[in-house]
Design a binder for these strands. Structure first.
Lengths: 244, 244
DNA sequence: CGCCTTGCTTGATTTGTGTCAAGGTGAAGT
DNA sequence: ACTTCACCTTGACACAAATCAAGCAAGGCG
């Protein structure tokens, strides 16, 4: 086990833990792997591949065979669907600890693409499937994850169906902050590795509207824009806004 | 077992099967109950209550304790969330065979309300939970249902985030038709028990826009409006429209 | 029968967000 | 140091859908 310095992007010099095996994985308790006992991990280890993937790389593509499921252990992944004419809707952002493949369908239902440099654990779907069949507590854990996924999808449906631009941006910032808090410490500083275009495609808006809205929130002193993210100034008002 | 004439709404004189027990239930193979063997059904029967519920009745309310899960065996249910100021977003419509309570969370994440007269099987959540713990194949079935739910939520997210009014209406009609086809025979006639307001709140539009859009589709000869529904005239063009 | 109510449609106008266009900033490369 | 490029911001204008308003059709009921 070795700690190596790795430049995820310029300016980011935080040490990144190389993960040679699941037992030593720091993200274990955050992820689906939390369902495994120590000795189960050993057999899990046999089918898992740990991979570092550079920014903007497609992890898997909508419509292709889902030969693998993934667990994200570092970085940010955008999950999206494309319409025939190129319109893009981002379904969600996956971060450290998130599992990709909850639905267990044989074809991918969306495309997954690395936003920045990511690390993932890749598991052959069939191997994962047979583990599920053997270990009910793993399936239970997976179903628990699916339940949360359904819940956040419904939040997103309400946001897209009934909220205006300002409410959408506020809700995005706060929900993304909550997600980060599961993994990092809760802070008024919210790093945003994804582009404005990504945020726009997540919120069903255009990049210009997102930019204008963030500018307005800054003008109104609810937040300030900082390099690679934002800082919240008025959490209460932002929360009020996001709830509609 | 008795067949009774029941007036669900004026003009609807189709015979409605009273369901005294699960073994005799015609909807069994459509629903979560398909996961049960014959003798398991007997124990299931002991905890299930069959209920007929009139139109516009609240089945359960967002935020309240989820003491029961439900399986719909007749009629249409609207599932929605409300924003504090009264804006409503319909998450989905549940029909014959649909299960409510996939997420298994302890509080309801949305309100469920009967659109027309419905029949449901009501199961205490804790009893259902313990059945899940005992019978992995039931959990597997439930997870399968959750997977489909995630998929349709994502369809809805794409619709709300990136489609215009015409595409939304076309997509709604076709996806609702597909859902009905699982249960009735696939037809160009689509009964619409829900109101225009319901459709609007499902599609993130206003009632006026839904009405105008349906009128336009009729003017363009893609469909005709008939009492209590629509009839598709040009399935190909409607499909093309809905795909964006 | 006529009156009221509910649900739906249609028209006129407004508005929030999209579109088009220009310009700014900072990092990377020559 | 200059150029290029990607990304973001801002402004002017356009447009799709919302809002406001009126009227229609069908059912319920006194």
């Amino acid at each position: 086990m070795s700690i190596v310095q790795k430049q995820n992007k310029p300016g980011d010099t935080s040490p990144v833990l190389e993960v040679p095996n699941c037992a030593a994985c720091r993200q274990r308790h955050l992820s689906i792997c939390a369902a495994f006992g120590e000795h189960e991990l050993v057999s899990f280890d046999r089918v898992v591949q740990h991979k570092t993937i550079p920014a903007k790389t497609v992890l898997f593509e909508q419509g292709t065979m889902a030969d693998f499921v993934f667990s994200v252990s570092e970085g940010t992944v955008r999950l999206f669907r494309l319409l025939p004419d190129g319109r893009r809707q981002i379904i969600g952002f996956a971060i450290k600890g998130d599992f990709l493949g909850t639905a267990m369908s044989d074809r991918h239902e969306y495309t997954a693409e690395a936003v920045d440099t990511i690390k993932v654990c890749r598991i052959p779907r069939l191997a994962f499937q047979s583990m599920l069949d053997e270990k009910p507590h793993l399936l239970k854990k997976l179903h628990e994850i699916a339940g949360r996924e359904i819940h956040t999808s419904q939040d997103q449906i309400v946001l897209l169906g009934r909220k205006n631009a300002e409410e959408r941006v506020a809700a995005f910032l706060l929900s993304y902050r909550e997600r980060l808090a599961r993994v990092f410490t809760l802070s008024v500083h919210i790093p945003l590795p994804m582009s404005r275009q990504d945020i726009a495609d997540y919120l069903g808006l255009t990049i210009e509207t997102v930019s204008r809205t963030i500018s307005k929130l800054a003008r109104d002193k609810l937040l300030v824009v900082v390099p690679d993210g934002i800082r919240i100034l008025d959490l209460d008002r932002l929360t009020q806004l996001s709830d509609g």
